[in-house]
């Protein structure tokens, strides 16, 4: 009997952790102090404005129009990065492709984030049987060979559009963030401030979204940043396989897809190497920012 009492008391003790002040300002400080991360952030801002800015003046249709007189041109003053097998300008495709890859990466990250946050919050906040059931569903989704399932859905969806592509990606990528949010919400709901809200007459929904959610903001920002990098990679991978964007909407992966042709891979580096380098730098930069933010949330690893 005694030990049982002690156990209940002890777990309550552990949950009473002291909170650190405003996470966002710490994050910002850490970001500025970490030169690599700061450089990455500036690079990302520049490339985003550049890509979205320039693509205002580029016509996607013009770039993807086949020009049979200019097939596989090496880089020249007219075609800065040469042309592909359809005589299409690689540089233009690179700009539009980066824009498209970034857009879908951000879109999928936001959608998976939205679903994952709500799902994880509900599961962790209510706990108990609800949590148990919801987490079994997450377990199942986590275990699916999601790459194949996404490809199958992309292949069989009747009217395939960019929206349906991002919805399919979202449907199989929301679980990671849901799990993270859930385990943090499980801790938060035991804290006195959440309990206090109950006694003050706030409804469960209100507590979840106005009391607990703000306390998860650091975790959400970090996770979404790292997810963005992963989603850019996954989208380009799917486009590379031919199950992402259609060819009329180039993405960075589409350009890499041309390298599936051994001739292109071996002899026409200008078609695929710039896209490969760009994906790599994009993902590295986003991850650098994400890792710096992550360090900011963990006081032990903070540099400043």
């Amino acid at each position: 009997m005694d030990s049982k009492h002690a156990y209940v008391e002890e777990t309550q003790e552990q949950m009473r952790s002291v909170k650190s002040p405003s996470g966002i300002s710490i994050m910002w400080r850490e970001l500025v102090r970490d030169k690599v991360a700061l450089f990455s952030l500036i690079f990302l801002i520049l490339i985003t404005t550049f890509v979205y800015g320039i693509s205002l003046f580029l016509s996607q249709e013009e770039i993807v129009t086949v020009d049979l007189f200019a097939i596989h041109e090496p880089p020249s003053s007219e075609y800065w990065l040469g042309t592909d097998y359809g005589g299409r300008d690689i540089f233009g495709q690179l700009i539009i492709g980066t824009r498209n890859s970034l857009s879908i990466g951000i879109l999928v990250t936001l959608m998976t984030g939205l679903i994952g946050i709500i799902y994880g919050l509900v599961s962790g906040y209510y706990g108990g049987t609800i949590d148990n059931m919801l987490m079994r569903i997450v377990d199942f989704f986590m275990i699916l060979p999601f790459l194949m399932v996404i490809i199958v859905f992309v292949a069989i969806v009747p009217k395939y559009t960019i929206l349906s592509f991002s919805l399919i990606m979202t449907a199989f990528l929301w679980m990671g963030i849901a799990r993270l949010i859930r385990s943090k919400a499980l801790q938060e709901r035991e804290l006195d401030y959440a309990q206090a809200s109950r006694t003050l007459g706030s409804s469960h929904l209100k507590i979840m979204f106005t009391q607990v959610l703000p306390n998860l903001s650091s975790l959400i920002i970090v996770t979404m940043t790292l997810n963005l990098a992963a989603n850019i990679g996954l989208e380009s991978g799917l486009s590379f396989l031919g199950f992402g964007f259609p060819e009329s909407t180039p993405s960075l992966g589409t350009l890499l897809g041309y390298a599936r042709n051994p001739q292109t891979l071996e002899f026409r580096w200008w078609v695929w190497v710039p896209a490969a380098v760009l994906i790599f730098i994009l993902m590295l930069s986003v991850r650098n920012v994400g890792e710096a933010l992550k360090r900011a949330t963990d006081a032990r690893q903070r540099r400043g």
Binding site: A229, G237, L256
Partner: peptide, 23 residues
């Protein structure tokens, strides 16, 4: 590990194939 995390597998495999397979 930083670089490994940021490199999509398919790009790395492509580069490896190009380098050690073809080149």
């Amino acid at each position: 590990t930083y670089i490994g995390f940021a490199t999509p597998l398919f790009i790395f495999a492509l580069v490896m194939l190009w380098l050690f397979g073809f080149h």
